[in-house]
Simulated scan of single mutants.
Amino acid sequence: MDIVKQIDQHTNRLIDGLLSSSAEQRKSLTIAILGFYFQLPNFEAVLYQYIQMRIKKKQLIADIKNGNVQNYRQAIEKSIANVDVYADSYEEPKPIALFILDAFAGATSDMKFSTNLVKLFVGIIDTLDYCENFSERPAYWNKLLEEEVEFQNEVLRQVKIGSSFNSLIYQQRYAGVAFQEV
């Protein structure tokens, strides 16, 4: 099985399938997907460490719903401008931290287009793939990864028929997963 080819094909399905999503669907899916990322180890601490912003989950969700994400975008831009990768004190973020930072940037971006939503979905796959590759239980993570791809395909089917999405689908889906082991 060529996993790279499968992921490329799945990404293309996401791109095609999310093109027809409404702005409301994109917002509700973004909020739902954040339920996955909030379960990653030290989500809020990572954001504070790299963006110097204390995140309150309820406020973030409300801001995404209402399109009030400018203060988050400004904090991200400021933190990027202040990073000096050539400084002796620079420490590259660990992979899980990078997944969190990318997800936060995507979730607080303009929802006019589906591009950032595709990145959020692919980020889940990348996170699970990372867990599979660096865990002592790769079969467990591989199963979650396969189930996630199928789940995302089901989401695409629901987008196509115009369904709305429960904001807790990802939080509930991954409630029992121990990401701390990786």
Rank of each mutant, 00 (worst) to 15 (best):
Q59R: 15
L60D: 05
I61H: 11
A62E: 12
D63T: 08
K65H: 08
G67L: 08
N68G: 04
N68K: 11
V69K: 06
Y72M: 12
Y72F: 13
Y72Q: 11
Q74D: 13
A75P: 04
I76C: 04
I76K: 05
E77T: 03
K78T: 09
S79F: 10
S79L: 07
I80V: 12
I80Q: 09
V83F: 00
Y86S: 11
Y86I: 01
Y86G: 08
A87R: 09
S89M: 06
Y90A: 04
Y90L: 04
Y90F: 13
E91G: 01
P93L: 07
P93S: 07
I96L: 01
L98F: 07
L98R: 13
F99W: 05
F99T: 00
I100S: 10
L101G: 07
L101Y: 02
A103R: 11
F104E: 07
F104Q: 09
F104D: 08
A105L: 10
A105R: 14
G106Y: 07
A107G: 13
A107M: 04
T108C: 09
S109T: 10
D110I: 00
D110R: 02
M111G: 14
M111T: 10
K112C: 11
F113P: 00
F113D: 12
S114Y: 11
S114G: 11
T115S: 11
N116K: 12
V118L: 06
V118K: 13
K119I: 10
K119V: 09
L120P: 06
L120H: 04
F121T: 07
V122K: 14
G123W: 01
G123T: 03
D126M: 05
L128W: 01
D129Y: 15
Y130L: 01
C131M: 15
E132C: 07
E132R: 15
E132I: 02
E132D: 03
N133H: 15
